[in-house]
Nucleic acid binder design. Structure first.
Length: 248
DNA sequence: AAGACACGCAACCGCAAACAA
DNA sequence: ATTGTTTGCGGTTGCGTGTCT
């Protein structure tokens, strides 16, 4: 795969004009895509590309929107706290980056995957090498369902016996576009409603993006994923349809 | 100052699942 | 039931940039 730094540079030939563009996105392309989705939403991604006048595949448009243009993305670097969450979720779920990302508001699967591959994995490997042990293998699907693991036990031990599973884990409330109606992109139209105060807050300030990040929590990262049922309880309360991916 | 190297990140690819005709 | 299309995911690649020698 060869990817040229081609943005804005279409070497002119007429037959090239109909060719799909690849490579980095230009600011103009970003603007076209953003405007198209903001004002008209998404029916199919290939139609978005067409309507926006972009010579990009629908797939490429989707990726650009999901990983870069989406207004609800966090721009700041991944925090220490978030890193703990990633490590913990990866241990429980394996390399299911989209599932992990769904539990980390404002973060994308690509971002988390990159962060894992470029930083955490190396660090864990180095630490394991220093300790003379193999790095822990990615969690298998069965591991999640299996008997409590050492990590689980450790986390359970770390959490006070009487620590209740919080009624509500950190709430992700995102209402990007005010007003609704036609101008509301379909990509956000399925934003889940939360019960209670958070949902009211998100509606009250409808042009703002609200996050209550993991950093606001007092619970240890392990606790979020290792206490059996905790995540499910959280997820099912916030997302009754059990469809985290429908957020986007 | 310049070349080599390492790292982070954006974006591609292939595949599988979901959906529509 | 079958076929074609679209979407979503995870793995991978390679460019751009910072750091080191």
């Amino acid at each position: 795969m060869v990817r040229k730094p081609s943005h804005g540079d279409d070497s002119g030939a007429a037959k090239e004009a109909n060719k799909e563009r690849k490579g980095l996105w230009s600011p103009e392309e970003d603007e076209r895509l953003f405007t198209q989705i903001t004002y008209h939403g998404v029916s199919t991604w290939s139609s978005v590309a067409q309507l926006a006048g972009l010579r990009r595949s629908g797939k490429s448009c989707r990726l650009r929107w999901m990983n870069y243009l989406r207004p609800d993305l966090k721009k700041e670097p991944i925090s220490k706290r978030e890193e703990e969450i990633i490590i913990s979720l990866q241990r429980s779920l394996g390399n299911r980056w989209s599932t992990i990302a769904a539990r980390m508001p404002g973060r994308t699967d690509n971002e988390i995957k990159n962060y894992w591959n470029s930083r955490i994995r190396k660090r864990l490997s180095a630490a394991a090498a220093a300790a003379g042990t193999e790095p822990a293998p990615p969690a298998a699907e069965e591991k999640v369902k299996a008997e409590p693991t050492n990590a689980t036990t450790a986390a359970a031990a770390a959490a006070p016996a009487d620590m209740p599973i919080p009624a509500r884990f950190p709430v992700f409330a995102c209402q990007v576009f005010g007003g609704g109606g036609e101008s509301t992109p379909s990509t956000t139209s399925s934003t889940q409603q939360n019960s209670g105060e958070e949902s009211e807050a998100s509606v009250a300030d409808s042009d703002m993006i609200h996050f209550l990040s993991f950093d606001d929590l007092d619970y240890p990262a392990d606790f979020l994923v290792d206490v059996p049922g905790a995540m499910d309880a959280w997820e099912s309360e916030l997302y009754p349809a059990n469809s985290m991916s429908s957020l986007y």
